[in-house]
Design a binder for these strands. Structure first.
Lengths: 244, 244
DNA sequence: GGACGCCGTTGATCCAGGTCAAGGCGCCCG
DNA sequence: CGGGCGCCTTGACCTGGATCAACGGCGTCC
């Protein structure tokens, strides 16, 4: 047994000063909509959780009992076909939220990619706060709209882009999101496996690997230690991503 | 010049009894969230428009000045790559809404597939109503969540399904949505061209055509007059759609 | 410290679906 | 009523990426 059970939820409302005020990613999250007073109400219902890599947060079809905020790490969302084929519908990083549902069931599964911290908001209590704070509702709506736009980009990628264009788009997307979070955008961290990338882009691991090799040979990127990728020519990579 | 200019917007607030009360698809739309009093406020800002087939409603990158509700007909949403490759991200029917945006620009283009009626809500005024009627906000959020779930299904389809599975899923999807609108679900109307279907499913028109022929030869469907498709064995079609 | 297993890479071959080409069949328009 | 133009279908062939296979590196567990 470990000295601290980090998997056990931590009720933050219990401590004197709630942690949301000091949350380093607050400005990125749904919580940025709130003032101090409201924030403390949110803190009353939140549970912090730290999860190892490759842990399931919830599975497709589970009762959708919570909403979540990623505060550190990486999460993947995916859907499966009965024979095991998998489509990863998104990767989430700090500041991103997950857990929206229709008909009270999650429509996809969520799993950590690396060690990850999340805030869990029980849906019932969250619904109450949403009624009480329209700002929160609006912020959630705006984040869902952004998600929807990203989903449409991903459909264009999946339906109409070549392997090379998919990989280029993927790397640029990772880099831009890192920048938005205030993290290093070049070289960019690529924490997920080839197999995860393949299932996100509608490819196989072999094709992902070959395409990285090819972009490297073309002098567009470099593969670095610690799953980092250096973008050597962003202009060219952008052109490739757009089919140029 | 035509005797009536049906393309000219019709301000409905001007007439004595607003038309939303009698709207035949109200229960399907965002408007179902509202009571009579609120509905008339919505009617004050709405413009009804009737459009011929293949008319552009707005284009990707346009200032997002309105939200829309489809009340009759069919609309397609799509994104283009610079070289003209196209991905249709969704088809809309009566009751569906469109026009959500991020950063005040539409992220996709919208075009009618057949003769179509839409309600146009100017964004500025809509925003005011959203503030005033949280129910409306919640309804819009819920519809966006549903859209998001559909987008994830479509990603699974685009990334991981075969041509046969894609066509089967497409027909079942059309049929189920028709049923939800209270329309005939079998035989099901397929108002869009092979080329539209191809660009929705990430295929070519040739492959779409061949796959229809193949499903017909297998006795799963029949192609009828007037762009209708009869589903002869829904169980088999469902199995095909899920990779069975 | 050795063996095993997982991940990533590379090579050889295959095939689903794309591309190119040719008609057929309505439908509109003169 | 005839010609032309979009659509749809079908056929022949091609190819990008999948599949199958082998192997090296590296971490983990006896």
């Amino acid at each position: 047994m470990p000295p601290f059970d980090m998997g056990r939820p931590l009720r933050m409302g219990a401590v004197g000063v709630h942690p949301c005020g000091a949350c380093p990613v607050r400005s990125l999250t749904v919580c940025s909509a709130l003032e101090e007073e409201e924030l403390s109400r949110l803190a009353d219902i939140v549970q912090l959780q730290r999860l190892d890599s490759h842990q399931t947060i919830f599975s497709e079809g589970d009762a959708a009992s919570s909403l979540f905020n990623v505060t550190a790490g990486t999460v993947k969302l995916y859907k499966l076909l009965p024979d095991g084929r998998r489509q990863i519908t998104g990767f989430l990083f700090s500041g991103d939220f997950l857990g929206l549902s229709v008909h009270d069931r999650y429509a996809y599964s969520a799993e950590t990619v690396v060690t990850t911290s999340i805030c869990r908001f029980p849906r019932r209590q969250m619904d109450t706060l949403l009624e009480e704070f329209p700002k929160l509702q609006r912020r959630l709506f705006s984040m869902a709209s952004t998600e929807l736009a990203a989903a449409q980009d991903q459909m264009l990628l999946l339906g109409r882009k070549t392997a090379r264009e998919k990989i280029a788009s993927f790397l640029l997307g990772l880099s831009r999101r890192a920048a938005r979070r205030g993290q290093r955008d070049n070289p960019v961290q690529v924490p997920m496996s080839r197999s995860d990338i393949a299932d996100f882009l509608g490819l196989t691991t072999e094709t992902v690997s070959r395409t990285f090799t090819q972009l490297k040979a073309n002098g567009v990127i470099r593969l670095l230690e610690g799953s980092k990728v250096q973008i050597l020519d962003e202009g060219v990579l952008t052109d490739i991503a757009e089919g140029g």
